[in-house]
C-alpha cells in the first residue's frame, strides 16, 4: 500500500495510456500491471466528441485513478489553461505538470515549470511536476506548494534507465519525507527495480510497456519489478564490499590433509 497525497494506492506503479497497439491491449496492460493510477491527456476533439468519448469510457471502465497531464505544453500559459481544462473534464485536482523546454530531449523548462506550479498550487491543484533531478529546482517546487516531485531518470521515451544515479540518490537523501516518483526514461523492469531500491516511492512509465513486443507481459513484469524493488529497499540491502566473504560457515569444516 502506498499513501499518495492522502490517497491509499495498492500499487507503486503509475502507467501511461499512450502508444498501445489497441484499446484492448491497453486495458489488459493496465490490469496486468496492477496499477491504480493512469495518466491521460487532453487533445483537440475532431469527431464532435465521439473520439474522446470512446477513450474516456474505456478508462472509466478500468476503475483506476486518473492523473491528467499537460504533455506537449511549452509555455506557462498553455500548461495552466490545459490543467484547468483537465480539472473540469476529469474531475480531479491532480495534474502531472509538464512544461517542455527542449524539443530534442523533451527536457522540462524548469523556470516555466516553477511559475506554472506556483499558479496551479494557489488555484487548489495537487501538482505533480515533471522535473529534472536538480535539487535547487526541487526545493523551489516544494516551496511553491508541490507535495510530490517527479524527476526524470532519462529523456522521455529513451529507455535509457537511470543515467545519473548519484543525482537520484542525492534527491532521495535530501527529501526523505517527500513522495518522489521517477517519471520518464525507464526502459526495463530492472531500471524500475533499481530506482525503487534507491527508495523512490513509485515510478511512472509508458513507452517501455506500450512499445514492448508484448505490452501485457511487460506491464506484468514492471509491476513485479516495482514491488520487488520496494520490498528490497524496505528489507535493508547489503552494502557492496571489495573483498569476498564466505557464505558457508568455515567453522567445523573437514580437514583432509
Amino acid at each position: 500500500m502506498f499513501d499518495l497525497l492522502g490517497t491509499t494506492l495498492p500499487s507503486r506503479l503509475l502507467l501511461g495510456t499512450a502508444q498501445y497497439p489497441s484499446p484492448a491491449i491497453l486495458a489488459d496492460a493496465v490490469r496486468a500491471s496492477g496499477t491504480s493510477v493512469v495518466t491521460v491527456s487532453l487533445r483537440r476533439e475532431m469527431a464532435g466528441g465521439r473520439a474522446g468519448e470512446k477513450f474516456w469510457s474505456l478508462i472509466r471502465s478500468l476503475g483506476v485513478r486518473i492523473l491528467p497531464n499537460t504533455a506537449g505544453c511549452h509555455s506557462v500559459k498553455e500548461a495552466v489553461t490545459t490543467a484547468q481544462m483537465a480539472r473540469e473534464v476529469f474531475g480531479t485536482p491532480w495534474i502531472k505538470l509538464e512544461v517542455i523546454g527542449n524539443h530534442d530531449t523533451l527536457q522540462p523548462d524548469v523556470f516555466g515549470l516553477l511559475e506554472a506550479a506556483r499558479i496551479l498550487c494557489e488555484d487548489g491543484f495537487a501538482v505533480f511536476p515533471y522535473t529534472t533531478d536538480d535539487l535547487v529546482v526541487a526545493e523551489r517546487l516544494l516551496a511553491a506548494g508541490c507535495k510530490v516531485l517527479m524527476p526524470w531518470c532519462a529523456p522521455i521515451g529513451s529507455a535509457l534507465g537511470p543515467v545519473n544515479i548519484m543525482a537520484l540518490r542525492s534527491m532521495r537523501g535530501h527529501f526523505p519525507d517527500v513522495p518522489l516518483i521517477v517519471d520518464a526514461g525507464l526502459g526495463r523492469p530492472s531500471h524500475a527495480a533499481t530506482v525503487m531500491e534507491f527508495g523512490f516511492d513509485a515510478v511512472l512509465l509508458n513507452t517501455a510497456v506500450a512499445k514492448a513486443a508484448d505490452p501485457v507481459g511487460m506491464a506484468c513484469a514492471f509491476g513485479k519489478a516495482v514491488e520487488a524493488g520496494r520490498e528490497a529497499f524496505s528489507s535493508g540491502m547489503l552494502e557492496p564490499r571489495d573483498v569476498a566473504v564466505p557464505s558457508t560457515p568455515t567453522f567445523g569444516r573437514a580437514v583432509f590433509s
Binding site: 495510456t17 491497453l26 491527456s41 487532453l42 478508462i59 504533455a71 481544462m85 473534464v89 509508458n206
Partner: peptide, 10 residues
Amino acid sequence: IEILSPMQGG
C-alpha cells in the same frame, strides 16, 4: 476556440 477531449497520454 479550443475544444478538447480525453486522449491517451503518458
